[in-house]
């Protein structure tokens, strides 16, 4: 299994940066997410996580560093959290951190909503 790396970019659409590491189990999703085909973009991320959680089975530390995402991306983020929650329920070790601008109260609310929806503990880390 290989690392998953996608360079973030900002053009007509905003591509978030992805850095999923098999060796360390550290996963970073950062930048801004506003895509032409949202589900198509996120599909390989789901697949990587499903493979990691069924084959590698090490601790995952998932670090969200998103500063903006539109509502279609927000559903895909929920899908990622649900995969992590499934892993945790099946005995996997999961740690989720969410870095956000301390003045961005909308983002703070968003993360609280994700915690309620996914029933996963997310550490809110103001920056």
């Amino acid at each position: 299994m290989e690392n998953l790396e996608i360079k973030g970019s900002r053009d007509v659409y905003f591509v978030p940066s992805v850095d999923f590491n098999v060796e360390t189990g550290s996963c970073v999703l950062g930048g801004e997410s506003y895509l032409e085909e949202t589900v198509k973009f996120y599909m390989p991320l789901y697949e990587w996580l499903k493979k990691f959680t069924s084959e590698v089975k090490k601790t995952i530390e998932f670090n969200f560093k998103l500063t903006y995402f539109n509502t279609s991306s927000s559903r895909c983020i929920l899908d990622i959290l649900n995969i992590l929650k499934d892993y945790e329920e099946n005995g996997g070790d999961v740690k989720v951190n969410w870095y956000y601008d301390s003045e961005d109260t909308d983002m703070e609310e968003e993360v609280e909503d994700y915690m309620i929806e996914s029933e996963l503990k997310i550490n809110l880390i103001p920056t």
Binding site: V39, T71, S72, R75, L78, D106, E109, I116, E117
Partner: peptide, 25 residues
Amino acid sequence: KREQRNLPQGERGSAHIGLIQVALT
């Protein structure tokens, strides 16, 4: 918003989550 976002793929009325988000924002 959480209820609408939790609906299975395909049932999600995408325009409406957008409107909910607009009101929240």
